[in-house]
Every structure is written in C-alpha cells, then in structure tokens.
Amino acid sequence: MLHLQLSINTCVKLVIFQGCDGSVLLDDTITLQGEKSATPNVDSLKGFEIIDSIKNKVESDCPGVVSCADILAIAARDSTVLVGGPDWEMYLGRKDSKTASYELANSNLPVPSEGILPIITKFLYQGLSVTDMVALSGSHTIGVARCQNYRARIYDQSTASESYLNDLRASCPAAGGDDDTVAPMDNVTPNLFDNSYYQILLRGEGLLNSDQEMYSSFLGVQTKQLVLQYAHDPLAFFHQFAQSMVAMGNITNAVDGGEVRRSCRFVNT
C-alpha cells in the first residue's frame, strides 16, 4: 500500500509545480536541497525505496534508458489498476530533472488546510482545469492522512456525523496526541479505488479541509457539481481520472533539459 500511495499521490501531488520529472525523488546533497523535507511532503510521502528497487532492476537490464519519472508514472497507472481503478495509455520518454525546488514545493503545492480558490489557482497555473483538479483529487480514495493535517477540521466542524468525529477524535486528541497517527482519507473502502471518496464528501465527512471544500464551499459551484456527478457515476469518474492523469503526466520540466538518472535519488555526475 505504501507503493500505491507514493505512486498515485506523489505523481498527482508533485507534478503541480515543475512537471512529472522525478524531482521529488532527489535526496539532499551538499549542492542540492531536495523537496522531500518541504512542508507539504515531510512525513507524508512514503515508499521511496520501492521506486529505488524498480529502478535498480530496470538499470541492470536496460541501463540509461528508462527515467525515474517514467517509472513513477507507470507505477501510478499500474497501482491504480491493481486496486480496481481505470487503465490508460500514456506518453513515455520523460526526462528526469537535474534540479529540485524546496521553495516551490512549499509555495505551489496544495496543503490540507487550504481553501478551494488557492487550490484551483495552483492547478490552473499548470494548465490543468477545475475538472482535472476534482478528478485527480479522487486519488484520495487510496491512502491516509496524518493527524496533524486533519486535527483542526475534526474539532471545528459540524457537518459530519458525531460517531465519525468521535472515532477520529479518539485517536487524534485536540492536544497531546501523536501528530503521526493516521486515518484513511476514504473511510468506507480505503483499499479499493472507487468513487466512495466523493460519496463521503456528500456526507460532509471529507477528512481534509481541502477535500471537503470542493463540495461544501459556497465558492465551489463547479466543483460541487463535479463531486455530485462522480459520486453517482463511477464510470464518469474513472473516465475523467484517466484523462486527467494523462494530461498531468504530459506536463514536462523545460527548465534544465533533463537526463535519465542512474539513481533516482541523485543526479548523474
């Protein structure tokens, strides 16, 4: 499951500012500050060693050909299929970034407490539509969130049922609890890629504020209609998710030319 969460949510989350270029996989070095320790990423993304293992196998059979960015994109698709989600054809031939940006990761990635308009703006900046944003957010049907990222919401809202809130509050107290306690973002079918994530939003039980805003915010007229559509029509969600993943995966980093890294954690020397 760590593999799946990294594959789907990393590619969705970290393409937003620079392209699907594998920059998030880079470790800190003396000359490069990576993105793993940026606020939206630290203690959130897991499973990098899975990508390392895949890369090592590919390099042993076919050195210098398959980029880490392509491996991440393929893993996202295949992981989605393995847990019941849609399949899609994708462009391959991405290059790996030779740079990373800690600053842009902090400023341009959506965060759990954010409102609907800033998140829409961040997607539009990359050429992704509101429809893409709502569909790609459906990747939260798989994966978990840390107590630190939903604590404020579960103690400052009344839209969800008391039983749901009480269960979350028991493991994530208002003070003195473990910030790293996790809860599934889809509390109905957390290990299945389906449309129950959107059905949860209709009940006001989105775990993250940024998710629930798509349905509950008075500013989210278009996003609310899309949430309703995907909650009632899983095929429409699957179709759009596949299209949006292709669109997102085609965003490239034109800044540094790129390379095919020998190790996903370090640029070539």
Rank of each mutant, 00 (worst) to 15 (best):
T141K: 05
T141S: 15
I142K: 03
I142P: 03
I142S: 02
G143Y: 09
V144F: 12
V144I: 11
V144H: 10
V144R: 12
A145Y: 01
A145P: 00
A145E: 10
A145H: 02
A145K: 03
R146F: 04
R146A: 12
R146H: 07
R146W: 02
C147V: 09
C147E: 08
C147P: 05
Q148L: 14
Q148T: 14
Q148S: 15
Q148F: 07
N149Y: 13
N149E: 10
N149R: 11
N149L: 06
Y150D: 08
Y150C: 06
Y150T: 08
R151E: 05
A152H: 13
A152P: 01
A152W: 13
R153Q: 12
R153M: 07
I154A: 01
I154R: 00
Y155C: 07
Y155Q: 07
Y155T: 09
D156G: 14
Q157D: 14
Q157Y: 03
Q157V: 07
Q157P: 04
Q157I: 06
S158T: 15
S158P: 02
S158F: 08
S158Q: 13
S158V: 13
S158K: 13
T159H: 01
T159P: 00
T159A: 07
S161G: 12
S161M: 08
S161W: 05
S161D: 12
S161K: 14
E162R: 10
E162A: 15
E162G: 04
E162M: 12
E162F: 06
S163K: 12
S163H: 06
Y164D: 02
Y164R: 10
Y164H: 12
Y164T: 11
Y164C: 03
L165Y: 00
L165H: 00
L165N: 01
L165F: 00
N166M: 06
N166A: 11
N166V: 00
D167C: 04
D167Q: 13
D167V: 06
D167P: 00
L168G: 02
L168S: 02
R169S: 01
R169P: 00
A170E: 13
S171H: 06
S171F: 07
S171K: 15
S171A: 12
C172L: 08
C172V: 03
C172K: 10
P173C: 07
A174E: 14
A174Q: 15
A174L: 13
A174D: 08
A175D: 11
A175L: 14
A175H: 03
A175I: 14
A175W: 04
A175F: 10
G176L: 10
G177F: 06
G177H: 03
G177L: 04
G177E: 04
D178R: 09
D178Y: 06
D179E: 12
D179P: 10
D179T: 09
D179R: 08
D180I: 06
D180H: 11
T181G: 02
T181N: 15
T181D: 10
T181E: 13
T181R: 10
V182M: 11
V182K: 13
V182I: 15
V182D: 05
A183Y: 08
A183P: 00
A183Q: 11
A183M: 12
A183S: 13
